[in-house]
């Protein structure tokens, strides 16, 4: 909870600073855009959280986004597939990718980093192959399908700002993820194996199956994110669609309080972390005239956040240990 409070304060500060430095930050158009991007990135960040909880990593998210983002318009416009068939196909491929990752990692004992790094190269390569590096898009068609991502929901009593449709999806995904992680036995299994896989296995938990499930969730939500991303922007260039998205997702999760060592995650924190990333990017565009330092600023902010977190944690451990010892000797 303290972590969420910390990052919420950071988010509020960054928002205030940006609002003071730039008039356009609080404009309805900018806010709507910001919220929409946060929702889209939030979905893939929640996905990668499941893998991070197991102590693993998924570097292939951006490429899965690309594969789905290119695959969906390609199937619809170049091959004339029906909407349901195309959606089922791309989501099925995404889930299959996750299953493949999970099997390689648990059954063959390959390292998650290696498996998903190969995935990163592989899926983008495939997307560039079947599109022949040409931009694929919906043109003027599939308007109703696109409202899934571009639609707005008017809120009562608030003028000049409408809730972007992807928020509905993020809300559903986040609530389901939070319930799964905190209220079901399977969530508890994931947290346990992320902390100590051996002890979890010795306690009768099928750790392999749970790990596979985590990779399936990650890739499926990456695919779903990719679907919404391409519906939002209307077309995808295979060369750079979804580039670095895995890093945005992982960074958001880390900012939101996940430990890459595993076993620690709060969904709310991850979403606030995603928002912080997007506000930072927005601030750089609005306040500075130099877009090219975006990565430097984001990198520095995350590094500072992680260092602060580690220092606080060390302090807390030392204090707790001292207290435990005092109790022990006091009681004896």
């Amino acid at each position: 909870m303290k972590k969420i409070l910390g990052i919420s304060i950071l988010l509020a500060v960054v928002c205030m600073v940006t609002a003071m430095a730039s008039d356009s930050f609080l404009s309805g158009y900018n806010l709507e855009n910001l919220v929409r991007r946060t929702a889209l990135f939030g979905i893939i960040s929640v996905g990668v959280t499941f893998v991070i909880v197991t102590g693993g990593i998924d570097l292939s998210i951006g490429s899965v986004v690309c594969l789905v983002g290119c695959g969906l318009p390609w199937l619809l416009t170049k091959h004339g597939w029906s909407v349901p068939a195309a959606v089922i196909a791309v989501m099925g491929v995404s889930a299959g990718i996750g299953l493949g990752h999970g099997l390689l990692i648990t059954k063959l004992k390959l390292q998650p980093f290696v498996v998903t790094l190969c995935g990163l190269l592989l899926y983008r390569g495939i997307a560039r192959g079947f599109t022949n590096d040409q931009t694929v898009g919906f043109g003027m068609e599939f308007r109703s399908l696109r409202t899934l991502a571009t639609g707005q929901i008017k809120l009562p009593f608030i003028d000049g700002f409408a809730l972007p449709a992807p928020w509905v999806f993020l809300f559903v995904v986040a609530v389901a993820a939070a319930i799964f992680l905190n209220r079901t036995i399977y969530g508890r299994y994931l947290l346990a194996l992320g902390r100590n896989e051996e002890a979890a296995r010795y306690s009768g938990i099928n750790t392999e199956r749970m790990t596979i499930l985590a990779y399936v969730i990650s890739s499926t939500l990456a695919g779903f994110g990719g679907l919404l991303f391409v519906l939002d922007v209307n077309s995808a260039q295979p060369v750079d669609f979804g580039n670095f998205y895995e890093l945005y997702a992982i960074a958001a999760a880390v900012l939101g309080g996940c430990s890459l060592r595993g076993g620690e995650a709060t969904i709310l924190g991850v979403i606030i972390g995603t928002a912080l990333m997007q506000v930072l990017r927005n601030m750089i565009t609005l306040v500075t005239t130099r877009n090219n330092i975006e990565f430097a600023i984001i990198g520095a902010v995350i590094l500072i956040g992680v260092i602060a977190d580690e220092l606080v944690k060390r302090y807390a451990v030392r204090r707790r240990a001292a207290r435990a010892l005092a109790q022990e000797t006091g009681g004896a």
Binding site: R195, N196, A200, G204
Partner: peptide, 24 residues
Amino acid sequence: KKQGVILEMAVRENLCLARLRRDQ
């Protein structure tokens, strides 16, 4: 420490870990 308990988890969570399936 490696195989018996999950050090970072609470006493309660550790005690219940093997029984979760039965009590779900």
